[in-house]
Design a protein around this nucleic acid. Structure first.
Ligand SMILES: [Zn+2]
Ligand SMILES: [Zn+2]
Ligand SMILES: [Zn+2]
Ligand SMILES: [Zn+2]
Lengths: 128, 128
DNA sequence: GCTTGACCTTGTAGTAACTACAGGGTCTAG
DNA sequence: CTAGACCCTGTAGTTACTACAAGGTCAAGC
């Protein structure tokens, strides 16, 4: 399988695949005589592993730790559990931060009275 | 007021102040004979305006639009209202995305059974 | 046989919003 | 007169990609 087909099957840009290889997340592709990268099912599995992890919000360092764990013959559940725990806490604190913003923003927006005012109090409040 | 004092008063790193000036968010500081930047109350107001906006999650482009509005003699409430509306929607969609992640992560974590297993099913699920 | 087009290669530069120096100048206190 | 705190510019690093530029490879069609 060449990179284009892997890209299509995993719905992941070719540049991203090459990038993951370059930073050592994805195992090196086998090279054909003409220099083209060649992939097999194993590569596809790893790429999907990475993509699923990214979709769950893990950053590159966390994905690397996950792949390291996955490379072990018997991945230690406790390690995975801890990694998930830390990450869930990160996600939850981002949610809290965004909700705080959203509430402050909605409170500000209410001062506009549907935008019918001619001199916006929001600007005044931001100026302090 | 020199940059150090402004930095201390606004709790904002000097580098960030210089950066905001460079990208044109903050009005140019007046220069003293020795080349040092000199600030007055007006600058402090604008810096705080920017910092408050950033704390509400507005990106640089949005902050620029906000400062443009704030520079008008009578800021149009409707414009501010719309800007807030768009931004609130961005924030809400980020919240939804993060909640989706958090739920998926918690579901995965539950499969670990408190990390007492010796072969982690999370890894298997991520591999697909 | 030759060309066209899709595909592949590398390497570099750009994005957002800063942050961290390196290498140097200025000013005040002891 | 010198140590230390402050200031200057400019460049490079961060994250996680994305977008070229410049060029090589290969199969199909004329
Ligand atoms: Zn587990
Ligand atoms: Zn995380
Ligand atoms: Zn308003
Ligand atoms: Zn926004």
């Amino acid at each position: 399988m060449r990179i284009g087909q892997l890209s299509a099957e995993c719905d992941c840009p070719v540049e991203t695949i090459r990038y993951y290889e370059k930073i050592g997340l994805l195992p090196q592709a086998v090279r054909r005589a003409n220099g083209y990268r060649s992939y097999d099912e194993m590569h596809r599995k790893w790429l999907q592993f990475i993509l699923r992890s990214r979709a769950l919000g893990f950053n590159q360092d966390e994905v690397r730790r996950l792949t390291d764990l996955a490379h072990q013959q018997r991945p230690a559940c406790a390690d995975v559990y801890k990694l998930l725990d830390e990450h869930i806490n990160n996600v939850l604190s981002k949610v809290r931060e965004l909700k705080r913003m959203q509430q402050a923003l909605s409170r500000l927006q209410a001062q506009c009275h549907d935008g019918t005012l001619h001199d916006c109090p929001v600007i005044d409040e931001l100026m302090g």
